[in-house]
């Protein structure tokens, strides 16, 4: 016997969680884009998407975050630290790739300093993931040794029932169990037919790629220049990526008062590594693209024992010139034969 959450009861859950102080966030279509946003009612949620255009990273690591406000006085400087808005949240309907993306970044944000902005939001969020029954040409979780029902990073995994009737509940963490104990009476015990999981074709041999990337001889391979010729150097792949985490700190204001902000930054940009002298150690787009791939599949796993990619495929899906992680690793797979 398993617990089942029927779709037509979801609004009762939303009401119950809201009265318990939770903000409810889920996949929505707004202003011609799909994203995760706060909702008042279950009817606003769109479960028909393969996955939203924007990832749930934005909910933990927003594109621009105030860190402190400052005022420079004659003899002193006043600072007021800004911390993220507090309050528990339920993210209902995350995708397994997005949820696992957050757990991939946890060790990074907790490594040489503990990023309070990240962890406060992580600790206050319950991630309720829905396993995928649909995939598109760009989904690649299976190539990353994950699956349409990967549980990593989720507090609850919901497995869709056939006919969109609802979901079978799999409680994974104490945080998830606690959120679901509040709706225990709305859930039903039972067994029902599950909808078949999405079939995600394996696109490249990850192990072969990693071996090739780890070989120092390939750092200067012609491959990097050839594949990067069409890269236009925008940051759309890095900004849509659930695991890309680079940021810049900027002060905005006038001479005496202002605000310090933490803004997304991207290794695709020439300015990212530009030195004050004008020297740029990554002066070409090929050096920048190599860095991105090396970081995700060589350096990051070297440090944190996990690849910095969860296989969502947004990089390839949105790329204006049809290149992303998939296209790159597919070509590396052929080189490493």
């Amino acid at each position: 016997m398993t617990k089942i959450l029927f779709s037509d009861k979801l609004d009762n859950c939303v009401e119950r969680w809201k009265s318990g102080g939770f903000t409810i966030i889920g996949p929505v279509q707004r202003a011609n884009i799909s994203t995760y946003a706060a909702v008042e009612h279950a009817a606003e949620l769109d479960f028909g998407l393969v996955l939203p255009d924007r990832s749930i990273k934005d909910l933990f690591f927003p594109q621009s975050e105030p860190m402190l406000r400052y005022t420079i006085k004659k003899e002193s400087i006043d600072t007021n630290e800004c911390l993220p808005p507090a309050g528990p949240r339920i993210i209902f309907g995350a995708r397994p790739c997005d949820a696992s993306g957050m757990s991939i970044d946890d060790p990074l944000f907790g490594w040489d300093y503990k990023d309070e902005y990240w962890f406060q939001r992580r600790n206050e969020s319950v991630i309720i993931t829905i396993a995928c029954t649909k995939a598109d040409d760009f989904c690649m979780c299976t190539s990353l040794k994950m699956a349409p029902d990967t549980t990593k990073g989720s507090d609850i995994l919901l497995r869709p029932l056939a006919g969109n009737k609802g979901w079978q509940v799999e409680e994974l963490t104490d945080r998830g169990r606690e959120a679901f104990s509040a709706i225990a009476d709305i859930l039903q015990e039972g067994a029902d037919t599950l909808a078949p999981l999405a079939v995600v074709e394996k696109k490249f041999d990850l192990d072969a790629c990693v071996t090739w990337l780890q070989n120092p001889e390939n750092f200067e391979s012609r491959f990097w220049k050839e594949i990067s010729m069409r890269c236009i150097g925008c940051a759309s792949c890095t900004y849509l990526c659930p695991t890309c985490h680079c940021f810049d700190i900027q002060d905005e204001g006038d001479t005496y008062t202002g605000i310090r902000r933490k803004n997304w930054d991207s290794c695709s940009f020439a300015l990212f590594t530009m030195h004050t002298s004008g020297h740029n150690p990554r002066s070409t787009q090929s050096a920048r693209w190599r860095q991105r791939i090396m970081h995700k599949f060589n350096y990051f796993p070297g440090k944190f024992s996990v690849n910095s990619c969860s296989g969502c495929g947004r990089c390839s899906r949105q790329c204006p010139v049809d290149m992303g992680i998939t296209e790159t690793l597919q070509e590396i797979s052929t080189l490493s034969l």
Partner: peptide, 24 residues
Amino acid sequence: AKCIKCYACRQACPMCYCRRCIVD
């Protein structure tokens, strides 16, 4: 409000050829 300043519009544009854009 949706803009994320990825500058894909700039990078994709043949007219945006400045070696260093004003925003950089």
